[in-house]
Amino acid sequence: MTTDPLEDLPASRTEPDGSAVVRLLSYNIRSLRDDVGALVRVIRACAPDVVCVQEAPRFFRWRKYAARLARATDLVHVTGGATATGPMILSSLRAHVERTEDVLLPRTPGLHRRGLATAVLRFGPAARLAVVSCHLSLAEWERHEQAGMVLERLAGTGEDAAVVAGDLNDEPDGRAFRRLAAELQDGWATSPWGGENTSPARGPRKRIDAVLATGAVEVLGCGVPAGLPGVTEADLRAATDHLPVLAALRVPAAGPGGAP
């Protein structure tokens, strides 16, 4: 008998009090340069409500490739891609998109320009969640500054329930990671589930991908999924050069102005 590891992670649902359990996946997909079939199998097996993508297609005909990925995974494109220089947000039809914004961060000569894909999503009648997908710089000093910009952007959404997910290019003891974790809950540290390290996909040694949430969000479980139904270890290695991070989050019902 095969055991589904996702049975240990709370399922997506809306509660009688208006709160919602949301499954959020963060995944660096390396511009779809690897085994797209394996990538699709991984995403579908995780059954996410929201996917925060990093390194989405961003060059010639990028919208077509983003739409194909969304279609193949039974999701819709919410925002981001080339317009955010790589970060992108996909969602299931369960999410009602209230507003979106793609933000370009300041350019440093000689370094890849970074951006943020941001959205406010509603689940059920009243559970609103602000979502930021990010991919921070390879340069230590720059990603520390960008971590501060991520926090500013999160606060700028005006939502108490908010989450940042992405490739931080930093480990938990790094300055950028610590700057984020000082104000947000580190999902893995708060409620570890599944595996920890995310990079590289072949023999992961570092945890540089993370889901972090404000205090209004209850982290029910967060980590690298393993043993997914219909997904082999070879699929996880072939899909891209990072492993995904899957989190189950309880989002409170929000009143007027975003207050729970």
Score class of each variant (00 low, 15 high):
122 R>M: 02
132 V>K: 01
257 G>C: 06
197 N>Q: 10
202 R>K: 10
179 R>Q: 05
158 G>P: 11
111 L>Q: 04
150 V>M: 11
214 T>N: 03
138 L>G: 06
8 D>M: 04
165 A>F: 06
194 G>N: 11
92 S>M: 01
10 P>G: 08
181 A>M: 11
72 A>L: 15
45 A>L: 09
17 D>W: 02
124 G>S: 07
207 R>F: 08
216 A>I: 00
180 L>G: 10
187 G>V: 04
208 I>R: 02
250 R>K: 12
84 A>L: 07
50 V>N: 09
57 P>N: 13
153 R>K: 14
125 P>Q: 06
230 G>V: 06
132 V>T: 13
216 A>G: 04
163 V>Q: 14
7 E>S: 03
120 V>S: 00
173 D>Y: 09
121 L>S: 00
241 D>Y: 13
208 I>F: 05
252 P>V: 07
68 R>S: 14
229 P>N: 02
97 V>E: 07
189 A>W: 00
24 L>A: 09
230 G>D: 07
235 D>Y: 08
132 V>S: 10
68 R>L: 12
28 N>G: 09
15 E>D: 10
64 K>H: 15
182 A>N: 12
57 P>H: 12
128 R>Q: 12
130 A>H: 12
79 T>S: 14
128 R>K: 11
250 R>D: 12
233 E>H: 13
22 V>W: 13
60 F>R: 15
123 F>L: 02
108 T>W: 03
153 R>N: 09
134 C>I: 09
192 P>N: 04
252 P>T: 14
83 T>Y: 03
27 Y>Q: 03
44 R>Q: 12
133 S>I: 03
82 A>K: 09
77 H>S: 14
217 V>L: 08
221 G>S: 07
249 L>S: 05
40 V>D: 15
197 N>S: 09
79 T>F: 01
69 L>P: 15
155 A>V: 10
171 E>H: 13
65 Y>M: 15
199 S>P: 06
39 L>V: 05
21 V>H: 11
14 T>D: 06
251 V>F: 11
104 L>T: 00
38 A>D: 09
130 A>Q: 06
29 I>M: 03
17 D>L: 01
244 P>T: 07
139 A>P: 00
170 D>S: 13
32 L>S: 11
97 V>H: 00
149 M>Y: 15
141 W>Y: 09
68 R>P: 11
225 P>C: 10
65 Y>V: 12
110 G>P: 01
147 A>D: 07
41 R>F: 08
5 P>G: 03
50 V>P: 13
197 N>P: 07
38 A>H: 02
145 E>K: 11
62 W>G: 14
107 R>F: 02
104 L>Y: 04
33 R>D: 05
104 L>S: 02
120 V>R: 01
25 L>A: 09
191 S>I: 00
127 A>D: 09
145 E>I: 06
242 H>E: 03
241 D>A: 05
41 R>L: 00
187 G>S: 09
12 S>G: 12
214 T>H: 03
95 A>S: 03
204 P>F: 04
119 A>Q: 01
112 H>D: 01
26 S>E: 11
62 W>I: 14
135 H>K: 01
224 V>P: 08
11 A>L: 13
